[in-house]
Design a binder for these strands. Sequence first.
DNA 1: CAAATATAATTGATATATCAATTATATTTG
DNA 2: CAAATATAATTGATATATCAATTATATTTG
Lengths: 144, 144
Amino acid sequence: MEKLDDILFYQLDKAIRTYRQFAQHRIMSAGFELTIDQWLVLQAIVDDPNRNQQEVAEAAFKDFASVTRIIELLVKKGFLNRSIHPDDRRRFLLTPTEKTDRELANIRSITMQNRKTALKGIPEADFDCLHQCLNQIINNCKKS
Amino acid sequence: MEKLDDILFYQLDKAIRTYRQFAQHRIMSAGFELTIDQWLVLQAIVDDPNRNQQEVAEAAFKDFASVTRIIELLVKKGFLNRSIHPDDRRRFLLTPTEKTDRELANIRSITMQNRKTALKGIPEADFDCLHQCLNQIINNCKKS
DNA sequence: CAAATATAATTGATATATCAATTATATTTG
DNA sequence: CAAATATAATTGATATATCAATTATATTTG
């Protein structure tokens, strides 16, 4: 029987999850109250507040339903204000609150450190290889 | 603002999730009733039925609590029998049922195809690079 | 314009992840 | 040996993923 660790996809899964656990712990112990997924969604909204939820979902690579629920939490936690969109009553207008920018900036510095730590010892030359391989996998698996 | 796609970890996440969605769809449309995670846990048990649940969790890179719940489902679906372990009443004795081997073998052939499709176009030479990079990330992020 | 269709978002159900608390049993230690 | 501690597994609470169904509004079409 092949060892699970020899299977590329198992290793891929393990790598991203190990990183997520690591990063989440560091964000929490620094006293922040956002999960990585909440951070991703919030960042996607701040980057372009005109996005509707489906565009946010696509940007953050999340499910529509998840985005609905995550935004719910972000509103509850006071990072977003939600009001009805003036041009389309099916949509919401999502506006980051005052504390949002500060929080995002603070988390960003931790995230930068996390990435650096996680990538330590990987030669520059391998980055391209990684990016290309991952892109190829994404394209191969994308539903057409 | 950096594009999310330029961030290695975002791409990593996207790659494994795209693969998972792809693989899960193909397993389902072939008429099987196991999720990838259930398959992983079941495989870990079949590989070595002497494992206790914590060892299963470690092998499948899952949380203890998740393993409890996944085993619950596997028992319900008739892939495992659960009885009290003769040597240690805190443990359970998990025995694959008759249909388990057949099911695993059938899914295996689909999984092989899936992996092949997902890796199409990636040069052999890049595999080592990938494995090494992922391992490095796992080690860098592992809690010590 | 009214009916049909499309779109934006939500909701419900089920699966998995994570953390903390709990239960039951086994082992260790004074 | 009894009390303290360790271990195996479960349970509860909350977050996220996925699919299908639903609701509300907007747009299209006959």
